[in-house]
Nucleic acid binder design. Structure first.
Lengths: 145, 145
DNA sequence: ATTTAGATGAGAATGGTTCTTATATAACAA
DNA sequence: TTGTTATATAAGAACCATTCTCATCTAAAT
């Protein structure tokens, strides 16, 4: 019942954006939500191929691009990686970047956002209108599992 | 005399990093400083080729990579561009990203950096040690020339 | 059921970057 | 100054992520 519900949700979200509901698109949306942490197009393709190997590379890339255009996904790039990553979280947020491996973890903090808003309210940048601010927080994870 | 001086400086900076002083490296360093605003490898190659068309693509890329390794340059990526850019300013700083064109402008503000330092001092991120923070400030330039 | 705008698949093409390997050279030592 | 050698370079092939082309297909409106 949960899956029925979420499939309906996917339909609704695609319809809402004026996009046709195709098996490929549903499958790709599912992949992104299952994969969670900022998958690359390649990861999404692999995941999707487990159940439906017929979906072509072009479709994966085009679909991702479409989703980005429609505001369903956000495309992000890390410093040291070639491949782009896709983020299903659309509320503005920041990222922790591991300088050890290529991990990337979400970071949200409303207090920080308020602080930044205030700061730039008081320190306007000449001839520039800010739309959004994202922090790249580089460092190392201290994993004691 | 100025140019003599800066060439000596280049030699010194390369030597200091334990790198051989080759015409290619000097030329590439010059290009980056002449080009200023976050050139791509392609831009650097073009600039260098004006005076020395014999320098190969591989050399440009390898040299840039070497400089990044040695801390002479920093490699940065923008959201919507494929190509990496190289930044000769090594002090930590932030960037304004134009959502109109692909312009990217430096932004430095010590007060902001202090604010961030304080904030994260008071709000430690569990299991993460921060090394540096960079802001991607997205927005539009209001150009009245 | 029919229509058609829009989506897909297959593979070629592209752009940015890295690899390979034979040759050249900066810098150190003699 | 010359010889030696570790390192750097040139040329082009290879590679990877991504986009393009275009013929075929299909979701969904009628």
């Amino acid at each position: 019942m949960k899956s029925k519900g979420s499939i309906t949700q996917l339909h609704t979200s695609l319809n809402y954006k004026g996009l046709r509901v195709t098996p490929q698109r549903v499958s790709i949306l599912n992949a992104i939500h299952s994969l969670g942490n900022h998958p690359t197009a390649e990861m999404i393709k692999s995941f999707v191929h487990q159940k439906n190997p017929a979906i072509s590379t072009a479709t994966v890339y085009k679909t991702l691009e479409t989703f980005v255009q429609k505001g369903i996904l956000r495309k992000i790039r890390t410093l040291d990686e070639e491949a782009a990553r896709y983020d299903a979280i659309l509320t503005d947020h920041h990222h922790l970047h591991s300088s050890q491996d290529h991990r990337m973890v979400d970071y949200e903090n409303e207090e920080l956002d308020n602080l930044l808003r205030e700061f730039f309210h008081d320190h306007r940048i000449p001839d520039f209108k800010i739309e959004s601010i994202r922090l790249e927080i580089h460092g190392t994870f201290e994993n004691h599992q």
